[in-house]
C-alpha cells in the first residue's frame, strides 16, 4: 500500500482521480505515503474523521509528523484488516452496542495482529493510535501490553520492559510496607 511520491503529470492525474476515490493518503514522519480507505479511516480514527469532515486532508499526503512509517504502516494495515474482518453493513448496524459496551476482548485477528509486533513497534503503534484517536486499536494494543504484565511480579515486569529501578533498597521496602495490603501470596 505504500505509494511512491509522484511528480509532475503523474501527480496531477492522481489528484484528479483522488477526488473520486474513496481513499485518503497519509504521510509518515519520514515522508512515506500510505493509502487507506476513507470510510475505514473516518470510522476508526476520530482525528482522521475530523480532518476528512473539515476538509483538511491533503491529496498529496496528509502529514502525520508524529508517526513513523513503520507505525503508520501498521495503522493502515489494521484499518484494512478491520474493514475486511467485519462486513461493513453489520458493523454499522451494530455500531451502537459496539461503541457503548464495555471493552470487548480482542478478536482472533486482532490478537494475531498485535502478537507479531516487536516491542518497539507495539509501543510506536500505541502512540500512533493515541495520536489518531483510534480507540479500538488503542484498547487492543494496551490490552496486549497488559497481557505482557499480567501475573508477573514487579521484578519480572521490570525485566520484560527494561524498566530501570531507581528506588533505593530502603525506599522499596518502605513502599512495600505501605502497600502491604496489595501484596498477597497465593
Amino acid at each position: 500500500m505504500e505509494v511512491d511520491k509522484g511528480k509532475g503529470e503523474a501527480e496531477e492525474t492522481r489528484k484528479v482521480a483522488e477526488a473520486d476515490r474513496d481513499t485518503v493518503t497519509l504521510k509518515s514522519s519520514d515522508g512515506k505515503l500510505f493509502e487507506v480507505s476513507k470510510e475505514a479511516a473516518a470510522r476508526l480514527s476520530t482525528v482522521l474523521a475530523g480532518m476528512i469532515a473539515g476538509g483538511s486532508i491533503d491529496d498529496n499526503g496528509t502529514d502525520l509528523k508524529q508517526i513513523g512509517s513503520e507505525a503508520l504502516e501498521n495503522v493502515v494495515d489494521y484499518c484494512n484488516k478491520h474493514a475486511n474482518s467485519i462486513p461493513s453493513a453489520a458493523l454499522i448496524s451494530s455500531s451502537i452496542s459496539f461503541n457503548t459496551a464495555p471493552f470487548k476482548e480482542p478478536e482472533e485477528w486482532e490478537r494475531k495482529f498485535v502478537d507479531r509486533l516487536s516491542h518497539d513497534a507495539l509501543f510506536d503503534l500505541v502512540e500512533a493510535a493515541n495520536f489518531l484517536g483510534m480507540e479500538r486499536l488503542l484498547d487492543v494494543t494496551c490490552h496486549k501490553i497488559s497481557e505482557m504484565m499480567k501475573g508477573k511480579s514487579p521484578d519480572q515486569i521490570r525485566e520484560v520492559f527494561n524498566i530501570k529501578n531507581d528506588y533505593t533498597k530502603e525506599e522499596l521496602e518502605e513502599i512495600r510496607q505501605e502497600l502491604a495490603w496489595a501484596f498477597y501470596d497465593d
Binding site: K150, K164, Y167, L172, R176, L179, A182
Partner: peptide, 17 residues
C-alpha cells in the same frame, strides 16, 4: 493499560520505579 490488569497488580506497579 492498567485498566486491563487485576487491581492488586495495578497497585503493585508502584514498585517498578
Amino acid at each position: 493499560i492498567m485498566s486491563f490488569l487485576p487491581a492488586p497488580q495495578v497497585v503493585q506497579t508502584s514498585l517498578l520505579s
